[in-house]
Design a binder for these strands. Structure first.
Lengths: 157, 157
DNA sequence: GATAATAGGAAACGATCACTTCCTAATCAA
DNA sequence: TTGATTAGGAAGTGATCGTTTCCTATTATC
């Protein structure tokens, strides 16, 4: 075992404390990984593509089957734990805002149609991303997931 | 209580038996509701729109917060219960096939671009639908969900 | 109305779970 | 090396859970 029960209860108040810390850590790691991918992008469209590509990567094979802690928390905890509901909503809202930002950026650099409603498009792309993680639970190949990325970008035309 | 413990164990083998029956019933009810909505459609694109509209309806407000049993099963049970994993995968695959069918239908009646890869587009639209149910867990308005429908249909252009 | 079948529900069971207590072993600073 | 802090871990506690047993109402059948 990586950590013993005795030490665990010295480091964390209770089971929920462990989970909150794990959730926070999960979100942070995922955010760092995304930032890393975003470093190699130029246009707004490229940034949206990078986000979707990361989700496609996470959603395939074994990793996909393991699932996403944010989605799992939304599904399992949001109805019974108001604090967790708040945190999950905050994470999704943050991703949504980032998508809005990248879409607007794309509209300025010409890589995204200026006729689009950035808010609606961002929400829709967030659905695509979270939906990937749901489909990924049923075991999908890298190809199945990766092919969704470019097709989804059609939404920005 | 609607049903007593004594009677419950006479009608079902165990807890899992209750769940399997509930799952089956849930899928059937949802399928009937969808068939009802599809009755008033003409083109392939209209049929896709109907599917998305039903998901948007289910995903908003209180119903959205309650969540979807299929998504919940995918997230919670698919990793630990192979039989449930199979059932969840079967339900999603069935919806995916139906979307493929409607897209092809749309390509023939001219309401959907013939340049599209029907399989990829169907998978992508399924992501949108399942993603709506995830976002819906965080409490979204009818308007927020409904506006996604027409935007998503852009994928069929 | 008698009889059989079914629903309702209390009580108890073993198992598991989250958690506490308490003691020992390892680590580290002085 | 000594003394103090921290990790590891066994054992026990109370609560909850899934399930079984058994008995009493209720309902349906003839």
């Amino acid at each position: 075992m990586g950590i013993a029960e005795g030490s665990l209860y010295k480091a964390f108040r209770d089971k929920r404390g462990v989970f909150l810390a794990a959730f926070e850590r999960y979100v942070m790691l995922r955010s760092e990984r995304l930032a890393q991918e975003l470093a190699n992008t130029r246009t707004g469209r490229d940034k949206v593509r990078a986000i979707l590509a990361v989700y496609a990567e996470y959603s395939h094979g074994k990793t996909g089957r393991r699932g996403c802690l944010v989605v799992g928390s939304a599904v399992d905890l949001a109805s019974s734990d108001p604090e967790m509901a708040k945190r999950v909503a905050a994470v999704l809202a943050s991703q949504e805002r980032r998508l809005v930002e990248f879409i607007r950026e794309g509209q300025e650099d010409g890589s995204v149609s200026s006729r689009l409603d950035a808010a609606v498009s961002a929400r829709l792309l967030l659905c695509v991303a979270q939906g990937m993680r749901v489909l990924g639970k049923t075991g999908r190949s890298r190809g199945e997931m990766a092919s969704l990325v470019d097709s989804a970008l059609k939404l920005l035309d």
